[in-house]
Write a protein that binds this DNA or RNA. Structure first.
Lengths: 227, 227
DNA sequence: CGACGCCCGTATGGAATCCGTGAGGACGCC
DNA sequence: GGCGTCCTCACGGATTCCATACGGGCGTCG
């Protein structure tokens, strides 16, 4: 997550750079309006922190220039507290307006709010679809297909496959599966697991007798290996 | 553009209603947190103006409840000025935070900024019309046709079909549907759902006894498959 | 080398649960 | 009062869950 900080106060820029870097952001800085526009075109930041009233180019003009080619969120950080300034900046294309002096944690929260909205799907760390062999598992839509054809799973079968697909390649203990599917109790294996693993293999494996993806680790548990 | 105003101060609600209506917004109002969640589920507002510290349900809880099923922008309008309150609200899912007393023109500008950003995402993610079989569902115009002839749906039937059509192919849990149509309460009883699914099938499926598009996944929920 | 115990996979049938649908009452709105 | 919509209730049928039983692979040990 790359942030462009545009402000003509070197001390503020330095403080922001340290704070933002400490929270995992990558920071590029510009000291005047013209430099901010140029740098934005080169660095393609994900979010812009913009001061109004910088030399060489008015803040509103900077917003308009950026909005000509990018939809990156823009937060205006300004000493001007009048509502007319806020209205002008927001209507020019800014997404938020924070007045100096500001609380750092509030600015960080507003950054998170904008980042969350601007990356609707990329925010999820894990890909919602898992593939192995000719099977695809869409964890969000709860769709399972085999060679393109949809496969019907019962609720218990789905819960088991979902848990395994969320831990691809990892060994899953029987106790872990029992806890996830049937609750905190039920640590005694009465044979449910073997039954549902068998049905899953029947529906997903080419040869249920010789599974290539839904493997069993004798005495331990099961493992779903993906390609 | 429909706005839900949730505040326990009748005077403020009245003033906002007049101001927003004068700027072309449609306004619905709730006086406490629980009513806000229920009303949001019924009215499907495009933007939510939310006061923290209302009776019956804490503002943060309201945000979390709404974020469970909707991405509509939420602006918190609160008398609490501490940065901790702002951080909590924004991290819970709010998009902006305005402290009372506030300038009306600034609030309007922030509304415009959020509306500007949230509008294009709807057009990108979902095609405004969904087709399956001989049925056409126009999500923007709220029109359903069957073999060219218009089909009349009751409001509840429409809400159910709309939610399913916005997630084509995905399995929709009964809880999700209940939350979307009736609010956070009523997560237990499934009597209504079966009824309305039956009526939808009667109106949309060629053979209601053997549905080909509005399928049921026993024990899990429903799924609308499109061609 | 064969018997034995252990673990795993699979088939089967009854029990419990879930689903579709019809009839009918309550409520709000012309 | 007429009408449309929402919701309750009950019941036959379909689906799913679970208990039980049986066969096969594998290592161990007499």
């Amino acid at each position: 997550m790359k942030i462009l900080v545009a402000d003509d106060d070197p001390q503020l820029v330095r403080a922001l750079r340290i704070t933002l870097a400490a929270h995992g952001y990558e920071v590029v800085a510009a000291a005047d309006g013209a430099a901010a526009v140029t740098l934005a075109a080169q660095a393609h930041p994900d979010i812009v922190l913009l001061d109004l009233g910088m030399p060489h180019l008015d803040g509103i003009r900077v917003i308009e220039a950026l909005r000509g080619w990018t939809d990156a969120p823009i937060i205006v950080v300004s000493g001007r507290t009048g509502s007319a300034d806020k209205v002008d900046a927001l209507d020019a294309g800014a997404d938020d307006y924070v007045t100096k002096p500001f609380q750092v944690d509030e600015l960080l929260a507003r950054l998170r709010a904008l980042a969350r909205r601007s990356t609707p799907s990329a925010g999820a760390s894990a890909d919602p679809v898992v593939r192995f062999g000719d099977v695809t598992v869409d964890l969000a839509a709860k769709i399972v297909t085999r060679a393109g054809a949809p496969v019907h799973l019962t609720p218990t079968e789905w819960r088991m496959l979902e848990f395994l697909a969320r831990h691809p390649g990892a060994l899953v203990t029987r106790q872990t599966l029992l806890k996830d599917i049937w609750g905190t109790e039920q640590v005694a294996d009465t044979g449910y697991l073997r039954l549902y693993v068998s049905q899953l293999r029947k529906k997903l494996e080419a040869d249920p007798a010789a599974p290539r993806h839904l493997l069993t680790e004798s005495g331990m548990g099961y493992r779903l290996v993906i390609d």
